[in-house]
Each structure stands twice: as C-alpha cells, then as structure tokens.
C-alpha cells in the first residue's frame, strides 16, 4: 500500500496505532435497527495518504466515514484515529473530532453567521484561540480557497461552489490532521464542480491525509493513492487508481465502473 509521507514522532500514538497510521478500522460492523449497513470493514489509512471511496448509492460510504468521527455509533469492531480509539467516551470523541475535519454534501454552513464567523467559531470556542488570531488564520485559509473577499458575507449570498469552499476552509481552520469529504461536489451545479475539486487537489498537494467519498473519477485518478470500492456495506476492492480503472478485479466493480464511465 502507498505509504508516502514522512513518519513523525507523535506522543499520542499508542502501540495499537503506529505513528504513521492516521486511521485504523478493524472488523467494523454496524446496524441500523435490524438492517446491516457495514460488515467486516477493515481499512488502514496512512498519514498523508489520499483515499477515494466510491460505490453505488446506499452502499454505506457515508456511514463508514461518519463512524470515523462518531457522528454514527457502531456496534462491533474498532476505529482508532490518530492513536485515539473512538468509543462512547464523550471526551475521546471530542478529541477525535478536533483532529478530523469534515466536509458535507450539503455544505452545512451556519446561515446565521458570516463566512468569517463560520470559520472562527470552532477555533475560538473549541481550541480557545484568541479571536484575533483565529481571524488571521481564517483569512489565510479563505485566501487559500480563493474567497477572502467574501469573508463578511452570509452563506446565503454565495454560490454553491463558494459555499463548499468556505466549508473546506472552515474545516481547515481547526488544523485537522485528517480531512474527510462526503460527496462534496454532488450538490453542485456542473459549472461549479471544478472550483471545488481544484481546491481539493491543492489541499492534497500539501500532504493532508484525505478520505474522499466521491464519484469524480478524474479526481481519483489525479489525487488518490488508493481507491476503495464499497458495495452492500462491504469493502469489495481496494487498489491503486491505475489498476482500479484499467483492470478492475471484482464483478461488482466492473459493473459499477461500466455504469458510471458509460
């Protein structure tokens, strides 16, 4: 597997998760009532690795990444994020969430706050950063996603693409070690997809650990170290992008690629 980045000494790391492992999911099972959504999911994400998760609708992609930052509880197996295992312990969960940024399909910006306030809310109230410093950092990230001039506006005044870039900046303002994306371009008008993908590509170039649920195959080819294909709650195939697109192994993968690539 494609471990590409430097190994850093990390005091938080434990024996269960060596310092170069960002996320380790083992034997994960999850049910919604009687319905089994995830079954026997094993996945190790190395620090700095970029993973693209794809699969048919309802295959459990969102549920999987939402388990990682405990937006969904799971019933069996274990998830260790940056050396901290995700349990029911609220303190641990908050610890994990501080280190994992998440970008949603529907942006989920806070409509009652300006773009700048959206970006400084968590740094000020979770990281206890002084307001001035938080604003400086926010402006830096807003510049990086190329919308510093919109800082004073409210989300409703922005286009979908701009809103999604604000959402990315908002997550980055917490200086997360891992960024997760759940179909970040699916709710966008076609002409805005590119600006968001470009932002994600630039982010990937900084060495950020990324888990992206997306069907943008161009993005996967360009950025991903590995592509994970899910179906019916299971990981069916994991491979490098070249191998995944040129010689898919599993029947379901072939069928899926046939459908989305036409």
């Amino acid at each position: 597997m494609g471990v590409t980045t430097e190994t850093r000494a990390d005091p938080a790391a434990t024996a269960a998760a060596p310092a170069d492992i960002a996320v380790k999911i083992s034997g994960l099972y999850k049910w919604f009532g009687e319905f089994q959504v995830l079954a026997d999911v094993d996945l190790e994400v190395a620090r700095g690795e970029r993973i693209v998760i794809c699969g048919p609708s309802g295959s459990g992609k969102s549920t999987l990444i939402r388990c990682i930052n405990a937006l969904e509880p799971f019933q069996r197996g274990s998830i260790v994020v940056d050396g901290v295992s995700v349990t029911d312990d609220l303190k641990r969960i908050d610890e994990v969430r501080r280190e994992v940024g998440m970008v949603f399909q529907q942006f989920n910006l806070f409509p009652h706050l300006t773009v700048l306030q959206n970006c400084t809310l968590a740094p000020i109230h979770v990281r206890k950063m002084p307001r001035k410093e938080a604003e400086e950092i926010a402006m830096r990230y807003l510049a990086r996603v190329r919308i510093p001039e919109q800082a004073g506006k409210y989300p409703a005044q922005l286009s979908g693409g701009q809103q999604q870039r604000v959402a990315i900046a908002r997550a980055l303002c917490m200086s997360p070690k891992i960024m997760m994306f759940d179909e970040p371009t699916s709710a966008l008008d076609p002409e805005m997809v590119k600006e968001v993908l470009d932002t994600m590509v630039e982010l990937a170039q900084t060495g950020m650990t990324m888990l992206c649920v997306t069907h943008e195959m161009g993005f996967a080819r360009q950025v991903a170290d590995r592509v994970v294909f899910m179906d019916a709650g299971q990981i069916v195939e994991v491979n490098t992008p070249e191998a995944f697109f040129t010689s898919p192994q599993h029947e379901r993968t072939k069928l899926f690629l046939g459908q989305i690539l036409g």
């Binding site: 609220l90 940024g101 998440m102 989920n108 979770v126 997550a171 917490m174």
Partner: peptide, 17 residues
C-alpha cells in the same frame, strides 16, 4: 436541519456550545 447539528459536532463543539 440535521446537518447543522452534524456540522457543529464534526467541528468538536460540545452539546451546550
């Protein structure tokens, strides 16, 4: 919307915040 709660929690805000 549920997304507002999720975004807040994903940023690490506790219940009262």
């Amino acid at each position: 919307p549920k997304g507002q709660y999720e975004a807040a929690r994903a940023l690490g805000l506790g219940y009262w915040r």
